[in-house]
Each structure stands twice: as C-alpha cells, then as structure tokens.
C-alpha cells in the first residue's frame, strides 16, 4: 500500500464496524458452546466442555458428521470434474455461445436454493433418489459446479495461450497438453474451486430438508432438528467445530494461492 493516502478515522471506523458485524454472530456461538447450563445460553458460573464431550460421545452426531463429510467429498469430486471440464471447454471454444454456457452454469448460484430444492424433489421421486446418499451427492455436486467454473475460468484467463501452442507445436496431443501444461498451471484454481464446492455441500441445509428424511441425515440437518426440538447446547459445540473446520479450509485455500503467486 505504499504511496496511497492513509485512510481517515471515519473510513477506518466504518471498516472495523463492518468486520465486527460480520464476525460477531459467529463468535457468539463460542461462549454458548462453553456454557455450564443445560440449555442454549451464555455461561453463568463458569465454562464447561461437557457439550463437546456429548457430541463426541453421541453416535447420532458422529454419524451425521461422517455422513456429511463423505457426501461433501463425493459432491466435490463431481463438481470439480464437471466444472473444470466445462471451464476448459468454454475457454478453448470461446465463442458467444460459450459465454451463454458459462452464465447457465452460474444458475445454481442465482436461483434461490428452495426453488431448486422443490424442482429436485419433483424429479428425484420417480427416479428413486429421495433420501438416498446418491441423490444428495448429485444435488450438492451439481449446485457446487458454479464455484469451480468461476475459479477455474479465472485461472484460465491468466493462462498464456502461447503455452498451449508451444506444447502442440512440439508434438503434444490434446490430452498430453491438458495433463502436462494446462492442468498444472490451473491447479490452484481447481483446488480453490474444490474447497468452495466442499464447503457448499458441507453446510447445505435447504435441499437436504426436501430430498432427504431418515436414512440421509447430514450435520446441518441435525443442527436444524436440534434447534427445533430441544435447544441442546451441543448444537453450539457442533457449530464451533463447523466454523473451525471451514476456517481451516479457507486458510488452506489462502496458503495455496500465496504459494502459486509466489
């Protein structure tokens, strides 16, 4: 930021207020998770880790965490493969039609997920995918594609097209060029997209409410049910774990980007 005029106190105050406004609602769950009471509240006589113990001793909570994790991993694979291929295809063909395809790929971000969920419910019924592991993976995988398309397209925009020409000119086939030149160059973009797609699936609730009921019971779904039914502080403990995990993923993303830039 050398040579830029320093910001005034008003601008700085506004920036801090905005940051706090974003972070405070997340931070409030930390004391709630450490409460010594038996209902959702702030700690009164001291802090306690009993609710974390409850979570790690409960087969329901652990089952949901595991299920959410596996679904998120599978959905991420689906999003990454489809999104990367789509972005590369659009980049290579690069006509007006491909701009349209790119916009089309962003639809899951634009359309409210509840609308999407209703649509999926109608289709998944006859296909026998309701309350199925595969159904949730497909739903999450497809709606995760936009994140990958965006990050990979950004990475490709910075890719020097002469590198591809150079590879082809030296005799590399299309698949060799893709494997040895294009993919290594856009790998940071793919990883970024994968992390966002994973987070998207990991905390997705609305679609799961519609297309899953008993057999597939993801972590956000269990938190939702917990809030509706018994206000157990264990939920706050789970939420803290979720936030920690997501933060770790985002930090991994940052580290990756810094490495690829440096």
């Amino acid at each position: 930021m050398d040579g830029i005029h320093p910001t005034g106190p008003a601008a700085r105050g506004l920036a801090w207020a905005t940051a706090l406004y974003l972070v405070l609602p997340i931070l409030i769950i930390v004391p709630v998770a450490l409460t010594d009471q038996r209902y959702l509240s702030l700690p009164q006589d001291g802090i306690s880790f009993q609710h974390f113990r409850t979570v790690f001793a409960s087969p329901e909570w652990l089952g949901s965490i595991w299920q959410s994790f596996i679904i998120a991993v599978c959905a991420t694979v689906l999003s990454v493969v489809a999104g990367t291929l789509c972005a590369i295809g659009c980049w290579r063909i690069s006509r007006r039609a491909t701009d349209l395809v790119r916009v089309l790929m962003l639809l899951p971000l634009i359309i409210p997920s509840i609308v999407y969920a209703i649509g999926l419910y109608r289709y998944f019924g006859p296909l026998g995918l309701l309350d199925r592991f595969a159904g949730v993976v497909i739903a999450h995988g497809v709606t995760g594609i936009p994140y990958v398309v965006i990050t990979v397209s950004t990475a490709l925009a910075a890719f020097d097209p002469r590198l591809e020409q150079a590879a082809r000119g030296m005799g590399a086939s299309l698949s060799q060029t893709l494997r040895w030149v294009i993919l290594p160059r856009i790998a940071p973009g793919i990883f970024s997209g994968a992390i966002f797609a994973f987070i998207h699936s990991w905390d997705e609730l609305v679609m799961v409410l519609f297309i899953a009921s008993r057999d597939v019971f993801t972590l956000p779904r269990r938190i939702w049910d917990g809030i509706n039914e018994n206000l157990d502080p264990a939920m706050a403990a789970v939420a803290v774990l979720l936030v920690l995990f997501t933060t770790l993923l985002l930090m991994a993303d940052r580290a990756l980007r810094r490495r690829s830039e440096g």
């Binding site: 020409q165 150079a166 082809r168 000119g169 030296m170 005799g171 590399a172 086939s173």
Partner: peptide
C-alpha cells in the same frame, strides 16, 4: 501442428 515436427 503436432504432426508437422517443426520447432518453434
């Protein structure tokens, strides 16, 4: 191009 065997 990949079939021409030209250096560039």
């Amino acid at each position: 191009p990949e079939k021409r065997n030209f250096g560039m």
